[in-house]
Write a protein that binds this DNA or RNA. Sequence first.
DNA 1: GTGTTATGTCAGCTATGTTGACATATCTCA
DNA 2: TGAGATATGTCAACATAGCTGACATAACAC
Lengths: 178, 178
Amino acid sequence: MGSAAQKADGRGVAGGDAPEPMFDLIELLFFAYRDFVGDPDRLLESIGFGRAHHRVLHFVDRQPGLTIAELLDILRITKQSLSRVLKELLDQDYVEQRAGVSDRRQRLLFPTAKGRKLAQDLADLQTARFVRALSPMGPEARAHAIEFLLNMIDPAEREKVAKLVWGEIPQLRHRSAT
Amino acid sequence: MGSAAQKADGRGVAGGDAPEPMFDLIELLFFAYRDFVGDPDRLLESIGFGRAHHRVLHFVDRQPGLTIAELLDILRITKQSLSRVLKELLDQDYVEQRAGVSDRRQRLLFPTAKGRKLAQDLADLQTARFVRALSPMGPEARAHAIEFLLNMIDPAEREKVAKLVWGEIPQLRHRSAT
DNA sequence: GTGTTATGTCAGCTATGTTGACATATCTCA
DNA sequence: TGAGATATGTCAACATAGCTGACATAACAC
């Protein structure tokens, strides 16, 4: 870390201690995330939806044809939690189901035109915030933010997330290993 | 944005449209935040606490002598929500109250030794994740992450957050206004 | 001494997660 | 072809953490 090597509390004298707590990053990430979800929250509330609906719609929009099992794996919630929210999205024509082609037990999820519109509006709100955050920074700011956020994810999850985000991994992005 | 100026859907022909959705940043922030709070969640669960307890303890630990009103303002929750969680922290000796000195209606909140220990353990978990994320990146990665996250916060809130995080604002950090 | 403020508390509601148990349709494979 | 595994649905009950509204108390301010 930068400076601050001296401290007067009970630790940090010598030996393998924890590094200085990064209170700034901890708190900034807390507030940044709150505002990041705040924009969508307001729009969703106006149509009687919540964050849970947002997550489901987002991933269905991004991965049309997603199965229930895949969605549960991405969201890491139980099927009972998912079903309440998904039922509302289906009933109100934001999402539709079709039977799987090779396996007719599967329910493939697709956004309707109405669902794609809402998903796009929500993504636009969040994108606008990223644009406002990054535009006053250097040209590499976006790449740095992507690398930083990817590195914040559990290493065991990164490949799965990268596949979900970019399809089939863009180019192995570790400045690390060497 | 990098490339991708052509698109085939119904928009983006000309005129002041929204920019391309930044799905990568949207999803990476979602997963990064989930893992960021996942470490504390597991520790908290082992002692019967939840995220709400974490937030309260964190800010009491960081701002000893915080009043109820100030805490409500930081967390943006109602006093009824706060009171349930705070009561448990008080009952179990993680936090203690003292009457305000100049205004005895106020309840000043302080962490106990036990509370400081827990707050530190939680902060250490989150700090370790930041260290793992930043160490394979360049020496300026931390400063970039701080600037990025601060810029993600609502402009109207930034000064308040900066004061909370650094005390009295370090040095005006806008590469933006030129 | 009256009105405002800081806080506490009771009661009930909502959103979103959980577990456990069981039902149904479909697939797979011996 | 039939038995077992799999994908999904559903019922019921519960937990956490937010909310609103109403009312109480103590201490401050003028």
